[in-house]
C-alpha cells in the first residue's frame, strides 16, 4: 500500500498540474512563445524527435566520458593521498581551488585553450572539473575511515601497505565512493550543459545548444521539450547509480539494510 502510494500520489499531482496548465493556457489563450501548453510541448517533442535524440546522445556521451574520467582520477588521487601525506599536503589545496572556482568562469579560458573546433574536448574538461571533486573528497575520507584495529590485525598477519589498501581501505571506502558517484553523475551533466552555455557556439550539437538555439528562435515549446529531456537524463543517471549502489552494498551495508525496512 505504502509502496503504491509512493508512486501514485506524485503521479496524481503531476497529472493534475499538467491538466490545470493545459486548461489555463487554452482558457486565457496564452501565446505559445510565452508559455506553451503541455500539448504543444509534446507536439514539439514529436516534431523534433530525431534532432533531440541526437543532441541528447552527444551530451550523454560527454557526460559519460567526463564522469568515468572523474571517477578514475578521483579514486587514483585519493589512493595517492592515503599512501603519501606529502602528496596530499601538496595537492589538496589545488583540488579545492579547482572546485570552488565557478565552472562558468573557467569555461571561456578552457574554450580558448582547446579552440572552438574542438569544443567537445572543452566540454569534457569542464564537466570533469565539476564531477571530480566529490569523488576525491569522499574517497579520501572513506580510505581514512578504515577500522584501526582491523589494519593492525592485517599488519600482525604480515600485510603490507598495498595489502591493507586492497583488503580493508578500498572496500571500506566503497559506500563513500558510491554516494559521491550519485552526486558526481548529476554534476557531470550540469557541468556539460553549463559548459555548452558558456561556449555558446554552434560547433557542438548537445542538448545545451538545442536550448540556446530554440531560445534565440523563440521556439519555447522546443525549449521545454529539451528541458524535459534533460531532466529525464538527470533522473536516469541518478537511478542507474542508485541501482549500482544497491547492488554492491545490499548484502553488507547499513544504508542498504535501512532501505529494505
Amino acid at each position: 500500500m505504502k509502496e503504491l502510494a509512493k508512486i501514485f500520489v506524485p503521479l496524481l499531482l503531476g497529472v493534475a498540474v499538467f491538466g490545470l496548465w493545459q486548461f489555463l493556457v487554452r482558457r486565457y489563450q496564452v501565446p505559445v512563445y510565452v508559455l506553451p501548453a503541455p500539448g504543444d510541448i509534446a507536439q514539439a517533442f514529436v516534431d523534433n524527435f530525431a534532432a533531440l535524440m541526437a543532441a541528447a546522445a552527444t551530451t550523454l556521451k560527454i557526460v559519460a566520458i567526463a564522469f568515468l574520467l572523474a571517477l578514475a582520477s578521483g579514486v587514483l588521487l585519493a589512493v595517492l593521498f592515503s599512501l603519501s601525506r606529502v602528496v596530499e599536503l601538496a595537492l589538496y589545496p589545488y583540488a579545492v581551488i579547482l572546485q570552488v572556482t565557478p565552472v562558468v568562469a573557467i569555461a571561456p579560458l578552457i574554450v580558448i585553450w582547446v579552440h572552438y573546433e574542438r569544443i567537445e574536448l572543452a566540454l569534457l574538461i569542464l564537466a570533469w572539473i565539476v564531477a571530480f571533486f566529490p569523488i576525491l573528497a569522499n574517497t579520501t575520507i572513506g580510505l581514512r575511515s578504515a577500522d584501526r584495529n582491523l589494519i593492525d590485525l592485517l599488519r600482525l598477519y604480515g600485510a603490507g601497505r598495498f595489502g591493507i589498501l586492497w583488503r580493508v581501505q578500498l572496500p571500506g571506502a566503497l559506500p563513500y565512493l558510491l554516494g559521491a558517484m550519485k552526486v558526481s553523475g548529476g554534476l557531470a551533466l550540469i557541468g556539460t550543459i553549463v559548459a555548452e552555455f558558456a561556449a555558446g557556439t554552434g560547433n557542438d550539437t548537445g542538448i545545451g545548444w538545442t536550448i540556446i538555439e530554440a531560445g534565440r528562435n523563440l521556439h519555447i515549446a522546443t525549449m521545454f521539450a529539451a528541458l524535459a529531456l534533460l531532466a529525464a537524463m538527470g533522473i536516469a543517471i541518478f537511478f542507474a547509480l542508485s541501482a549500482l549502489e544497491w547492488l554492491l552494498l545490499r548484502r553488507w551495508h547499513e544504508s542498504a539494510l535501512a532501505a529494505q525496512g
Binding site: D147, N149, L150, L153, L154, Y157, G158, A159, G163, R167, V168, P171, G172, L174, R251, W252, H253
Partner: peptide, 22 residues
C-alpha cells in the same frame, strides 16, 4: 580485540580465512 573487528563486506568464511589469505 574487544570489538569483533570483522570486515563487514565479507562473509563469515572470508573473515575467518583472512590470515590464510594474507
Amino acid at each position: 580485540f574487544q570489538e569483533p573487528t570483522l570486515m563487514p563486506w565479507a562473509t563469515a568464511l572470508s573473515n575467518a580465512r583472512l590470515p590464510l589469505d594474507l
